[in-house]
Amino acid sequence: MTITPVKELVLRAKEEIETLSRDEVWRLAQAGEALVVDIRDPRELEREGKFPGALKAPRGMLEFWFDPASPYHKEAFATDKKIILFCAGAWRSSLATKALQDMGATNVAEMDGGFKLWKEEGRPVEA
């Protein structure tokens, strides 16, 4: 059996999605123009801290929360704001952003570098 390595899937997704700088994500978030969505695992949130004001949406539920026809839909996703996803290192967020695009999202992007670089740069983090 031959599989496509996840790194290849991520690279393909990045060719088709919008990636925003951490500065741009912060600017949009502070201006109230973005819904910033943290798709990391709850254990990562506890261990590493949180992006201020980000919606926590576990990766496994993202498509269900996004879909208005899903019994699990979350109203926060029914927005005209830009939806910006991030994870720890911008791999899961690439795949997740591509998945939402495949579902019809047109105003969705990922944050470059993920939360790891966000935190390493000394940016705001909630405990």
Rank of each mutant, 00 (worst) to 15 (best):
K50H: 04
R43M: 04
R123E: 08
W118Q: 08
A54R: 03
A57K: 00
A13D: 03
R92T: 02
R43G: 02
K119A: 12
E33I: 11
E110H: 05
L28S: 09
F51V: 08
E24F: 08
R12D: 15
A99D: 07
G113C: 02
K14F: 04
A54G: 09
L20T: 11
V108N: 06
K119M: 11
E75T: 09
V37M: 01
P42D: 06
G114N: 01
I17H: 01
K14V: 05
P52N: 10
G53D: 05
G89T: 06
L20R: 05
V10A: 07
A29C: 11
W91F: 14
I39H: 00
T97F: 02
R43V: 02
E120W: 09
W26L: 15
P124M: 12
F86D: 01
E110V: 00
R43I: 00
F77V: 03
F115V: 07
K116C: 02
E121L: 13
W118M: 08
W118R: 05
Q101T: 09
A13N: 04
F66N: 06
R40N: 00
E126G: 10
G60D: 01
G114K: 00
A31N: 06
S70F: 06
D80K: 12
T106K: 14
F64K: 12
A96E: 02
R123I: 07
I83M: 09
A13H: 03
E16S: 08
P124G: 13
W118V: 06
D23G: 11
A78Y: 08
A76Q: 12
R12I: 10
A69Y: 15
A127I: 07
R40T: 00
K7Q: 09
R92K: 14
R40F: 00
I39C: 01
Y72H: 14
R27V: 13
H73P: 07
P68G: 14
I3L: 11
V10D: 03
L20P: 04
G49F: 03
E8A: 15
A69N: 12
V108G: 05
E16N: 13
M61D: 06
F66G: 03
D23T: 11
F77C: 04
G53W: 02
P68D: 15
E126Y: 10
I39D: 00
T2V: 12
A78F: 08
F64I: 07
E16A: 13
V6K: 07
S70W: 08
S93D: 01
